[in-house]
Design a protein around this nucleic acid. Structure first.
Length: 586
RNA sequence: GCGCUUGUAGCUCAGCUGGAUAGAGCAUCGGCCUUCUAAGCCGAGGGUCGCAGGUUCGAGUCCUGCCAAGCGUGCCA
């Protein structure tokens, strides 16, 4: 309907241009909005006010001329000029009813668009280090990222969902060493566990598995392990040097083959756990991209070479630096450390180069807000490599702070006492978890109240939408019990009987769905869809309380059934996109 | 210090990219179940949109400066 009005307005503008009222060169920049107040009709445009200045006219006078030039259309019942110069459109109800038929015809396809057709988008999200289970902080990125990806797909984009697996680097060595140390404990060795090691219970479990499967194959005496190792922090040493020395010792004592065994078991176990966790959360990927494979392919070296050729690398203090400050970053960044090892950033440059080579039209990274300082350097790298950095969009997701009622839930990675995503899912369920995560704008710092999400009573917003869906299902069950068959054609024919305010409101809301979906997708704002579904549920609940659907008059009854059936379809489509269950009974 | 994000009702948040009288939910108060699920509905109260300027027909929304909160500012990832 919006597009239709836009076309009509543009025609009117052309007429005015021909008549010399408007200068031919003016480009009409205007909006068409749903009127908030029913007094203002169904749609309103501000075009007269936008063009008043170039036309050297006052807005209301210009509006009169635009309205006069407006072509007649059967869908437009009436046009009014109001306020400072708004043009308000009143849509013919008969035109509005068509949406019910369209929803029925399109079914699960209703709302999908072709806006992004022919464009490929890559969405990378979560990408947590495989050094432990996902926690609730990752949950928000997972829910948000997956819905953004699904929304883009609904808007016609070809979407590639990807998880970047940091399976190389120091953190992974710390993981492997932590597992080995716990394994030695299993064997009966007495060893002090490093403060900087991974202390979670899952490390012990992996260690126990290895011990069960391989016995003492990886056992080495504790004396050899701690011999000449710099002391740990509690003993007055440096925890970083301490753990680095332990890693080196582990590699020496085990030899690279056995060390790799431990490393791989740790990686595989944890990565599999993450994959299962996400799948159960309704989050799926096309690709799990390995940092290690990237390095082995020589891509990192190649990226550095290209930066070198472009003149952006230099040596200082024994390290190799990327002159990112020349491209808008705060300062230059190290890409190769003094010890000859590439930094995480170096891999990331190669990774983004790889993404670019794959030819995506858009590259979307979803990061935790704590990584925001990282954006300028990645964009700088893309520029330095001659790439169009505007293809890259980084969406930041703020942290969720967990509450249980009034009480803040403490999280600490170090102690291993963090709340995992799995624990959250078990406590509040997949539906509520996804709903709550995506309910807020991603940049909003969010309070996640576990008590509210689990409450099975009035105050929980998740059930509000689901309840509306279940109620509609229930109406159709009642219909069967009364042995009244639903007559679809009869209902469609008598849609004009739906004249109640509640019915017209519901129809108007249903008609908005495609726009909401598209805006939600293009702005990467899933919360708009959530808010829409709540509005839709409200319209239905209100209608439900005000009127009876299963009335004796078959014409009215079937018309109403068609309307609520359309509402049911849109709710199902919206919830399906959010991967939230639409229950037939509650 | 600098940078990013945020600041809207008692609380948690929307506000359609600058539009008409700033909206929801929760909480508070008052009503509605002998007919389709009361996990619902109807009504009431509650606002200096952090503060101060600016831009214009028009600002919660844009620009500047303050104030406050969170995060960042590693040869960690």
């Amino acid at each position: 309907m919006k597009q239709k009005l836009e076309a009509l307005i543009l025609q009117a503008i052309d007429v005015l241009k021909k008549d010399g009222i408007l200068d031919g060169g003016v480009s009409p920049k205007f909006t068409i909005e749903h009127a908030r107040d029913a007094q203002h009709g169904d749609f309103a445009t501000n075009i007269a006010m936008m063009l008043a200045k170039p036309a050297k006219s006052n807005p209301r006078a210009l509006a009169e001329k635009i309205v006069a030039a407006l072509p007649v259309d059967s869908a437009v019942a009436r046009v009014e000029i109001a306020g400072p110069g708004f043009i308000n459109f009143f849509i013919d109800p008969n035109a509005q009813y068509q949406i019910v038929q369209k929803i029925h015809d399109d079914g699960s396809q209703f709302g999908l668009s072709r806006t992004g057709a022919g464009q490929r988008v890559q969405v990378e999200f979560v990408s947590a280090n495989p050094t432990g289970p996902l926690h609730v902080g990752h949950g928000r990125g997972a829910a948000y990222g997956s819905v953004v990806a699904d929304l883009l797909e609904a808007a016609g984009f070809e979407v590639h969902r990807e998880y970047y697996v940091n399976d190389a680097g120091r953190q992974m060595d710390i993981l492997a060493t932590s597992i080995w140390l716990r394994y030695l404990e299993e064997c009966g060795e007495i060893i002090p566990f490093p403060v900087n090691g991974y202390r979670g219970e899952y490390i012990r479990e992996i260690a126990a598995e290895i011990h069960k499967a391989s016995g003492n194959e990886y056992r080495r005496p504790a004396e050899l392990l701690i011999e000449n190792i710099p002391v740990d922090e509690p003993q007055g040493g440096d925890k970083e040097t301490h753990i680095d020395a332990l890693i080196e010792r582990a590699k020496t004592l085990l030899g690279s083959g056995l060390y790799q065994d431990i490393f791989q078991v740790g990686l595989k176990t944890i990565l599999q756990d993450i994959k299962d966790d996400l799948a159960e959360f309704g989050v799926n990927y096309q690709e799990w991209f390995s940092e290690r494979m990237l390095m082995e392919s020589g891509a990192v070296d190649e990226a550095l070479n290209r930066l070198q050729q472009a003149g952006y690398l230099y040596e200082k203090d024994g390290a190799t630096w990327f002159a990112s400050s020349r491209l808008g970053d705060e300062k230059d960044r190290v890409v190769v450390r003094e010890n000859g090892q590439g930094t995480y950033f170096a891999s990331d440059i190669a990774y983004h180069m790889n993404k670019l080579h794959r030819g995506y039209d858009r590259i979307i990274n979803i990061w935790g807000a704590d990584h925001h300082g990282y954006i300028p350097r990645v964009k700088a790298a893309m520029q330095a490599l001659g790439a169009d950095e505007s293809k890259l969009t980084v969406l930041l997701v703020q942290f969720a702070v967990l509450y249980r009622g009034e009480e803040k839930v403490q999280m600490s990675t170090r102690s291993g006492e963090f709340v995992t995503l799995r624990q959250l899912r078990n406590e509040v369920g997949k539906d509520a978890a996804r709903f709550f995560y995506v309910m807020r704008r991603s940049e909003q710092h969010m309070d996640f109240d576990l008590k509210l999400a689990t409450s099975r009573t009035n105050e929980n917003p998740v059930y509000y939408v689901q309840y509306a869906y279940a109620r509609i299902c229930s109406v159709f069950r009642q219909l069967d019990e009364k042995n009244w068959a639903r007559d679809l054609l009869e209902g469609m024919k008598h849609l004009p009987l739906l004249k109640e305010e509640h019915e017209l409101n519901l129809i108007g809301t249903l008609a908005r769905y495609p726009e909401v979906l598209e805006r939600s997708a293009l702005n990467y704002e899933p919360h708009q869809l959530i808010h829409y579904l709540r509005d839709l549920a409200t319209d239905f609940h209100t209608y439900y309380n005000a009127h009876q659907f299963l009335v004796d008059d078959p014409a009215l009854r079937n018309a109403r059934l068609n309307l609520i059936s359309a509402a049911k379809q849109v709710m199902a489509n919206g919830l399906e996109l959010l991967k939230i269950n639409a229950p037939e009974v509650m």
